[in-house]
Amino acid sequence: MRVAVLGAGAVGTRLARQLVSTEQVSEVVLRDPNRSRLEDVARSLGEGAIADSSGLLEPLDADVVVLAGDPGAHDVLAARFLRANQHVVSVSDDLRDVRALLELDSEARERGRSVVVGAGFAPGLTCVLAAHGARRFDTVDEVHVAKVGTGGPACARQHHRALGRMALDWREGGWVQRPPMSGRELAWFPDPVGAQDCYRAALPDALLLVPAFPGVQRVTSRVAATRRDRLTARLPMLWPTHPEGGPGAVRVEIRGRRGCARDVAVFGVMDRPAVAAGAVAAVAAWWAAEGRLARHGAAGLAELAEPLPFLLELGRRGVRAAVFEGDAP
């Protein structure tokens, strides 16, 4: 199969590297507005990668197109390639992007194509963990997601914007907007990240998780923030970012019933967000092209991916999940 990757930043580069090393992928086509970076990345990947300097919206010869560039307008790109009868995978965690991409569901179903939405670290890996954890329950009542860390400069800028915008929770069967930076909660992530104060922000996780769990009563998402983050969230980003984001982690808590008893399951992953996001998007692209997703249409991985095989493949690529062992509160 031939896969195109639009965006050669931290996540796009890791994603392309994952695809080049995937046996089923014959060729990876890279596009990025920064031509110098595009050529450097393609050269580093070897013979399996091609640098294509065409515009992002120009036609592509590929089975799957992965949108790994800056958040914003992913729906425009997705619609362009969907109408060319290509599968699309987006790694964006921008609330507007995710909402607009989900609106492509009907068209994608009609065309027999998949639009995988939010196929990154969080959402993405967190969606697969939630689907896996839900198998332990007869009914799922609550899903709570928390994350720390960013995948690179574009991800850091999106993280900063999200902290200054209204959050979206699902509560008792309806959507509720919450003030940004509210709902402070101490979340425990896998070592060595440990405990972090997490807050509400404009995160899209609930949009992807609610359809996957009919009858769920509460779905929330939070992101770790420092004091500086909280003080400057409504201002332009004033400091330089790490080129690959450094270490990060995600945590997914599922609450529900098994028989007559209530129970809790907690899963976590510690990794560099760009590395984990690249692996998730690479597996999603491979599965979309081979028809291994649960259905056609636009949705998150909690709906589209069979969780255990997906997690096993990620583990083979070095992204491993941990489960909290202990008593439910």
Rank of each mutant, 00 (worst) to 15 (best):
L45D: 05
A10N: 00
V98W: 04
R37K: 14
L311D: 05
H87Y: 14
L95S: 14
R113D: 02
A282V: 08
D191N: 10
P190D: 13
A187F: 08
A294D: 05
L208Q: 02
R251L: 15
G245T: 04
A305E: 08
S26H: 09
S21L: 15
A62D: 07
G7T: 06
G297M: 10
L104K: 01
A284M: 11
D52G: 06
A16P: 02
S114M: 05
G300S: 13
G278Q: 03
L207A: 07
V116M: 04
E107H: 04
D52L: 13
H296Y: 12
G318L: 09
P247W: 01
P211R: 07
L209C: 03
V28D: 01
G164Q: 01
P180L: 10
K147L: 13
A277V: 06
L30N: 12
H160Q: 01
L311S: 07
R37T: 11
A225D: 02
V280G: 01
S221N: 01
G9C: 04
F121E: 02
R14I: 00
V65H: 03
G124V: 03
L168V: 06
V66A: 11
A322G: 12
F189C: 10
P309Y: 12
V11K: 00
A224M: 07
D141N: 11
A285E: 09
V28G: 03
L95C: 07
F213W: 04
R255D: 02
T126F: 07
S36T: 14
V3L: 06
V98M: 06
H296S: 14
D32T: 05
L203G: 05
P240E: 12
R320H: 08
G152F: 04
